[in-house]
Write a protein that binds this DNA or RNA. Structure first.
Lengths: 217, 217
DNA sequence: CCTACCGATCGGTAGG
DNA sequence: CCTACCGATCGGTAGG
């Protein structure tokens, strides 16, 4: 039951916001009475905490695994961005929820980022700086700012695709549009990070990344 | 008075959201009684319309001027992205308001985009395609998706900087952090669009863009 | 632009 | 997990 409440709460908070969702709305969606919700979660604020906790807990396991894996360079870049993109495209509600939280409670989310995300971002940034010394990565990349932008871009693109996707061709079907959207996102992130290689050694780098995106769907 | 109400409404809707702001909150901020608000705006929904209308009206004049100006290539790219960035950094409430609207009313905002934004995006995309034929722009850029991402990145970066900026160095002052953040945003947008030039003809392209950003502050 | 007021809904509690 | 209920606040109206 608790889990079922969290599922519906996630859906409703993402769609209408925390203030735009009443306990009555949520009770109706779950199929129970309003006071029964407050048996599982003592207050509406606790419900918010529960929803957010479940969202963030996913990365507690995944991030360390990705970052401590014995890969490097483009390979690692692929693994991390792919994980980031699939996590949010799998269920765009996660992206909408995070954006709403950033707007509604900037101070609290900022504290949570400092505690849980910053240490891992630092690892990624150290990797980028190493890549810059090796000459693989553009020397004028600002690592912290770059990582921030890529994360913000993935999350906000997914969160607002239904709205912003309006500028894309109406002819294509929605599936194809999403695929194009994600493919371009990955291209922007990659091409602004890695230096173009001098030699024309064709090992299908671009193709690998694009097909990875298609697997994600 | 009407203008003063719109100013406070913009501030409060951006900070707490439409559903998170009561007419009482707004009346207190303006310094009048609640029913007096409803003399100027017949309903809360009309207030939302008024706030959004004022926000979008800015582009009605600026966009055509920028796009029909007799410049091209990197020069035009600079002018457009600079306008986009300064508009939102001048008052981040605009960015927060648009993101909230995208989340709260996707269908309505989508319609407004199709009517007011899409035609201009098409002009930019035609420019990009022309640049691709000339070889100035990466051939694998997806124009519609690229433009969408740059707009989304600018808006969401500004909207969530207070939260997401937590990953950047705590040592620097806030002003410097914002400048770094914006500079990297412009670098990502530019370097993922333009092809690297073969010859080393140093005409300070990068410096121009970066100092333009500093003017914006 | 104000005072006075309204029905509906809000999050939450008592008690079983 | 339910019924019954509460004070506070919501957007909005009447009337001046």
């Amino acid at each position: 039951m608790r889990q079922q409440i969290l599922v519906e709460a996630t859906r409703l908070f993402a769609a209408r916001g925390f203030d735009g969702t009443s306990l009555q709305d949520l009770a109706d969606a779950v199929g129970i009475r309003k006071p029964s919700l407050l048996y599982h979660f003592n207050s509406k604020a606790e419900l918010r905490r529960g929803v957010l906790e479940e969202l963030l807990s996913h990365w507690q396991d995944v991030l360390p695994r990705l970052l401590l894996a014995a890969t490097s360079g483009l390979r690692r870049f692929d693994a991390i961005t792919r994980e980031l993109v699939t996590f949010f495209t799998d269920s765009p509600d996660r992206a909408r929820l995070l954006v709403r939280e950033a707007l509604d409670r900037p101070v609290e989310l900022r504290a949570s980022i400092v505690d849980n995300v910053s240490p891992w971002v630092k690892v990624v940034c150290d990797n980028i700086r190493a890549g810059q010394k090796q000459g693989m990565i553009h020397p004028d990349v600002d690592p912290e700012a770059y990582v921030t932008h890529v994360i913000a871009l993935v999350i906000s693109s997914v969160a607002t695709f239904d709205t912003v996707g309006a500028v894309m061709h109406a002819g294509d079907d929605a599936q194809a549009q999403r695929a194009r959207h994600v493919a371009e996102l990955l291209r922007v992130a990659r091409s602004s990070l890695f230096r173009p290689r001098e030699r024309a050694d064709d090992d299908n780098e671009t193709t690998t990344l694009t097909s990875a995106d298609h697997q994600a769907r």
